[in-house]
Amino acid sequence: MSVISIGNPKGGAGKTTLALVLADQLHENGVKTAVIDADPNAIIAKWAAKRTKAGKGVPYTVVPRPTEGEMIQTIERLSETHSIVIIDLEGAASRMTSRALARSHMVLIPFNQSPVDAELAATAVALIEEESEALGRRIPYRLVRSRDSAAIATKTSKRIASAIEEAGLPTLSVGLVERAAYRDIYEFGALLRELNPTETSGLPRAQENAQALAEAVIEALRVEYKA
């Protein structure tokens, strides 16, 4: 069992998209997955409600925003029956975020390819390191490039990548590429495999990226927990 938290203090960093895409692919690969929607916007919970209303059913467990006092019990309860629990964290630092981090085996920090996003990702790293110090154990994390260019890297993204490398911050080997399919899964309350390639452009590439991303996350967990 692994608990993966996804967080960034900046809105629009791609946190919820990353959670949805990762849960989608883990489910597709037969991994029993649960998602705790701890974001005040409750986008994943709304996605699940949209599916239920359409009679599609929800393919993996989605728990709408638990209270601060319920967070640890919710994580532990889901961990007993699921292989991976994903937590879509709220943006701001809070006791709820702290409790989720304390139970996490891995934290994913999505960031857009901009200097502002890179700085805020560094703030998220500092929060994780503070929590690690308080717990007396290391909390593994990976920065994840969000809305990654499907074409060539820009000069700005190259500078950011260089700065991250110089700082020694671990980055997931695969980023989340900007794809229409990732917007459509929310709009249509769909899974990637349910989208129509005649209505969603670049769907096969999106599916390839999503699969590579899920594999990279599993590999990062294997690296951190060799046993």
Rank of each mutant, 00 (worst) to 15 (best):
S5N: 03
P170H: 03
I44F: 12
R159P: 14
P197I: 06
K15S: 05
N29T: 09
A167V: 00
L22I: 05
K155F: 05
A181I: 03
V223Q: 14
G91M: 09
T171F: 10
A134P: 05
G30C: 15
K226F: 10
A180K: 05
I185K: 00
K226M: 14
G12L: 04
L169F: 07
P204N: 06
K56M: 07
E131R: 07
E133N: 09
R193Y: 09
Q73P: 08
L101G: 00
E165K: 09
S83V: 08
A163M: 15
S149P: 10
N29M: 11
E68I: 11
A19Q: 09
M71I: 09
Q207S: 15
P40H: 12
R222Y: 12
S94T: 10
A124V: 00
Y141F: 15
P59S: 15
G175H: 02
P204E: 07
A48Y: 00
V58G: 01
E166P: 03
A134D: 06
T52V: 11
L108H: 13
A167K: 05
E28F: 12
P40F: 03
R205Y: 15
T61I: 07
E166V: 06
L213T: 15
S146E: 07
L172A: 01
V35L: 10
M71H: 13
T16A: 05
F188L: 11
D88Q: 13
S149C: 03
L127S: 07
T156M: 02
M71W: 05
I36K: 00
A163R: 01
I139Y: 08
P59D: 05
H105R: 13
I128C: 02
A118S: 01
S5T: 11
K226G: 07
G175V: 05
K46C: 04
Y186M: 04
E187D: 04
S104D: 04
G136N: 09
Y182R: 01
L203F: 03
I164L: 11
T52K: 10
G69F: 13
L213D: 06
T61N: 08
S98C: 14
A13C: 12
S83Q: 14
M96Q: 07
S162M: 08
G91P: 12
N8I: 00
S132M: 08
R137S: 07
D184E: 04
T52L: 14
A134W: 15
N29R: 05
V31Y: 13
Q25M: 15
L120W: 02
D148R: 06
E70F: 14
I4G: 02
A122N: 12
A180M: 08
W47R: 00
E208N: 14
R103A: 09
K50R: 07
E80I: 11
P197S: 04
L20R: 01
P59V: 11
V217K: 00
A180Y: 08
S146M: 10
L22F: 09
D88L: 13
L191P: 03
I72H: 01
I75S: 09
